[in-house]
Write a protein that binds this DNA or RNA. Structure first.
Lengths: 187, 187
DNA sequence: CCGTGCATGTAAGCAGTTACATGATTTC
DNA sequence: GAAATCATGTAACTGCTTACATGCACGG
């Protein structure tokens, strides 16, 4: 141990989820899927690895809490853990916005083929954002709303709305681009 | 040899840049920084590694072209390379939009501290997008416009505009959120 | 008793980043 | 003569993903 002077972002995500009320690794994984996943992905192996490190560093306290014969370990933040989370929240080092999108990459190089290929790419981008909005409406936004009442936390809902509006922006951009290119195709 | 049935996205990015007129690894790296970088980052080691693979697969042809005593290797796409690029452009497997943003992550967990910390996070997000827009205006959009005339390619410019407008959207969202939260602070 | 969900991980591997190394040419 | 830019990589590392492994509990 430890010198957890600075928390890694992924460690902070796990610690923050415990602080919002997710107790086991599995619950954290579920919560991540329904909330931060769209701007901070992390799978089960990372969650369990981070839990182990955070406990070793004294930022989380873990207890075995088997349900019948089913293993289960639950965690609560320590005072040091809450302090570390607050320090991380207050840091103002510049964190980049990273985007990675192979569909935009295809559109970028679309001059190398026929025009209908570019239209197909734009359609793919729009369809993907439509699906994303459905997912926000069915899963992410309702979960964020429950977080507001269950954990008295408002920012998860604000951030979830950002995600939905981002996809609305993308769809609107697709429409504008189609207009600019002159659509002869049927919608 | 090879079974380059399907091009990796990074390989396609390098191949596509050569197809747009970037000849050496260094020029590709420069072009990437001024264009696809914001949605498909890749550093010098990947560029040189991909060039080697693409040449071995017969998708690029390379020639030594030293300038004086300074080593330099230039590439041109082969017929097979152009065909592979077109196949990649036409594939319609669903490619995800991936976002990774530690600032949004901080905002998500911002209920764990004082309200002014959340405001500071929003300010950081806005400031970052303002810097990004400056960069689009000074470097990316002018380069995309040159690509239109130099390489008769229009999509780089459309995609560059997407990037700029994305950051405008983010700034507008920050402003809306500040209003909703009730700003007492001076701008 | 069968499928779904709960629950916790390990092992292996890959993609990508960071740091380093080298040196020539051009511009101020 | 110094600084910036051109030019090409290698080595080491890290973070993350994929695939696998295991098995209980519960609803139908």
């Amino acid at each position: 141990m430890t010198a957890s002077r600075t928390l890694s972002n992924t460690a902070a995500a796990v610690l923050g989820m415990v602080n919002l009320g997710a107790r086991s690794g599995y619950q954290i994984g579920r919560a991540v899927e329904r909330s931060v996943r769209f701007f901070w992905a992390l799978g089960p192996p990372q969650v369990y690895a981070e839990l182990k490190r955070l406990e070793a560093d004294g930022l989380l306290e873990g207890h075995d809490d088997a349900r019948g014969h089913r293993a289960r370990r639950v965690f609560t933040p320590t005072a040091a853990g809450r302090a570390a989370l607050e320090r991380w929240l207050e840091q103002d080092d510049e964190q980049p916005l990273e985007l990675r999108d192979a569909e935009l990459l295809r559109l970028f190089f679309a001059d190398a083929t026929e025009p209908q290929v570019a239209h197909a790419r734009i359609d793919a981008i729009r369809a993907r954002s439509r699906r994303a909005i459905e997912h926000f409406d069915r899963a992410i936004l309702p979960a964020a709303h429950r977080t507001r009442t269950d954990a008295q936390a408002q920012y998860p809902e604000h951030v979830a709305r950002f995600g939905r509006e981002l996809h609305e922006f993308i769809i609107a951009w697709c429409d504008r681009l189609d207009n600019e290119l002159g659509v002869d195709r049927q919608r």
